[in-house]
């Protein structure tokens, strides 16, 4: 059995520290996801209306988000704002702002798409049955839209969790940074720590994301 550098994990608080690092990453993504979902629903509903300025705002916003790598956006926020406005944003704050801007645009688009995906004939037949417009929206359109929306929203959260790995590059001490520190500190004692520790990080990310992917897939199947 070659030395896989796994023993480092059980030294001191190393494993706990990795978990704490993972929590930092998850915290950033969950806060951003929460903001995105709330703001996204608002934006999506507003943009869903005909001849709404929000429709154009959303489209332009999405275009920027879709074309620029998240890494570049993080850089702009982290380095750019201090230069332009003299702000001194922490890495974590920059990350939350960027992820929320990204998530709100995508969530807004998902909400707009989900509401728009309910066939017009559904609205018409509900109205033909004598339901009033608010009733139609609440009882006919929303339940159908939500079924389409939830799996996609979960996917967005999963992508956010994966993207938080980037924040290590703007100085946030999260799981990858902790991993680096552990490997550095044990350079002598466990020269092969890089293998074991990075493998652990890999598995931890997988375990964080996989249940969400699975849930989204199953909901999608269930509601089809």
């Amino acid at each position: 059995m070659p030395d896989l550098g796994l023993e480092v994990l059980w030294k001191g608080r190393n494993f706990i520290r990795l978990l704490e690092g993972l929590w930092t990453a998850l915290r950033i993504s969950l806060v951003s996801a929460l903001i995105s979902i709330l703001a996204g629903i608002l934006l999506g509903v507003l943009a869903g209306r005909k001849r709404s300025v929000f429709r154009f705002i959303l489209r332009g916003w999405l275009a920027v988000i879709h074309i620029m790598p998240q890494m570049v956006l993080l850089f702009l926020m982290y380095f750019g704002t201090s230069r332009a406005f003299g702000w001194n944003l922490s890495g974590e704050a920059s990350a939350i702002i960027v992820f929320s801007l990204w998530g709100t645009a995508e969530m807004g688009d998902l909400v707009r798409g989900a509401v728009g995906s309910v066939p017009v004939i559904q609205r018409e037949s509900a109205e033909a049955l004598g339901l009033k417009p608010p009733q139609v929206y609440l009882m006919i359109i929303l339940p159908q839209a939500v079924r389409r929306l939830i799996p996609q929203a979960i996917n967005l959260v999963t992508r956010m969790i994966k993207t938080t790995s980037l924040v290590t590059l703007i100085g946030v001490v999260e799981i990858l940074k902790v991993a680096q520190q552990i490997i550095e500190a044990n350079r002598r004692a466990s020269p092969n720590a890089a293998f074991g520790v990075y493998l652990t990080v890999f598995v931890m990310y997988y375990l964080a994301c996989r249940p969400l992917t699975l849930m989204s897939k199953q909901l999608e199947k269930h509601w089809r």
Binding site: T158, K162, T163, T164, S165, L166, T168, L169, L176, Y198, V201, F202, Y205, Y206, C209, R210, T213
Partner: peptide, 8 residues
């Protein structure tokens, strides 16, 4: 699909 490129 469930792990970030950076970690990979």
């Amino acid at each position: 699909r469930n792990t970030p490129l950076l970690v990979q």
